[in-house]
């Protein structure tokens, strides 16, 4: 059984620890810091964040997406044909992202995340997964002034992200994950989603994952089991119906169990976590279960995020003791 995260990790700690990245970006914005210096701070914070995940007891970590301004901009800004617009609320969270505007045909010209991935693997004692926002979510959260069709735009994003994933794979990534919260808010569009999934993983030999959060898969389950990913992660916090769905139709892929609330500071206890794993993972080979928070951790203060991960890892170890 694997204790892991969905993607992001809080970028700055609370007092008395200094908010180094925040201060560095402020300095950079004022012209008091060079890009090289800012990059060095971001690297150091990435190392801290990797260490915190390992200290918490995780088996599989990420770079924390420390450099990401938000889950759209970081991937969109290096693509041709895109400009970055004003702030808009990210789903029903209290966090905002800048909306990509698609002005011309999308074109991938250079990797956005490969250097981050390589740096993270070099500085982590645990395996690192590569995490990207999926093509459908990228398309849904953009303003489309060129394609005039979600289907065409999602296809274009899938093409671009497929190039990104291949670059990650060439750099040694053995697990590449796509986060697709948007489809849970637009299940009518499932056909478009399926097409973009097929295109984004086309030709990949690395293991692949798909994380669906901020809701349940009612209406698209068990169909999602036919999607071309090795692992599918589900949100059992905001997706209360997922439990019943799994009960009715057994899960046939590796399962991502998002059972820790990534959006609330209330702490879950290891015994209860172990109990949830036992219930939800019944009938699935423990090696095929990845236990995680329900979504990325950026909605939480840093210290709470780490404490949640520590409790999560403890719960996973307890569950292993029982299931083995």
């Amino acid at each position: 059984m694997i204790a892991t995260v969905v993607g992001s990790y809080p970028k700055v700690p609370n007092k008395p620890r200094p908010a180094r990245l925040r201060l560095a970006i402020n300095k950079f914005d004022r012209g008091d810091m060079t890009l090289e210096e800012l990059d060095r701070v971001a690297d150091e914070v990435t190392i801290e964040v990797l260490q915190e995940q390992v200290e918490a007891g995780l088996d599989f970590v990420t770079d924390g997406q420390i450099r990401w301004e938000d889950e759209q901009t970081y991937l969109a800004r290096n693509l041709e044909g895109v400009s970055i617009n004003g702030l808009i609320r990210w789903f029903d969270t209290n966090m905002y992202y800048r909306q990509p505007v698609i002005e011309e045909p999308l074109a991938w010209t250079k990797p956005s995340t490969v250097r981050d991935y390589t740096f993270a693997t070099e500085h982590s004692s645990k395996p690192v997964k590569a995490v990207l926002t999926g093509p459908y979510t990228m398309a849904r959260l953009s303003v489309d002034r060129h394609y005039n069709s979600v289907e065409a735009l999602a296809g274009a994003f899938a093409e671009a992200l497929n190039r990104e994933a291949k670059a990650l794979q060439d750099a040694g990534a053995t697990f590449i994950q796509f986060n697709e919260p948007a489809i849970l808010q637009a299940k009518d569009d499932y056909t478009t989603f399926v097409a973009s999934c097929a295109r984004v993983v086309d030709g990949l030999s690395a293991e692949t994952g798909l994380y669906l959060y901020f809701g349940d898969v009612e209406g698209i389950y068990p169909q999602v089991l036919d999607l071309p990913f090795d692992l599918i992660g589900l949100d059992f916090v905001m997706g209360a119906k997922n439990e019943g769905l799994l009960h009715r139709t057994p899960f046939t892929k590796k399962l991502g169990l998002g059972i820790i609330d990534a959006r609330n500071t209330r702490l879950e206890q290891p015994a209860a976590i172990a109990e949830r794993i036992k219930t939800l993972g019944a009938g699935i080979d423990p090696d095929n279960i990845h236990v995680s928070p329900s979504a990325g951790l950026e909605f939480l203060p840093r210290e709470v995020a780490q404490e949640k991960l520590r409790l999560l890892a403890e719960g996973v170890r307890q569950a292993e003791g029982v299931l083995v």
Binding site: P10, V12, N14, I25, Y96, T265, L300, R302, E303
Partner: peptide, 17 residues
Amino acid sequence: VGGLVRSYGNRYYHKPV
């Protein structure tokens, strides 16, 4: 008033509990 949570970009606020 709780810990720092990012609002967007480099903006953070103390989210209440």
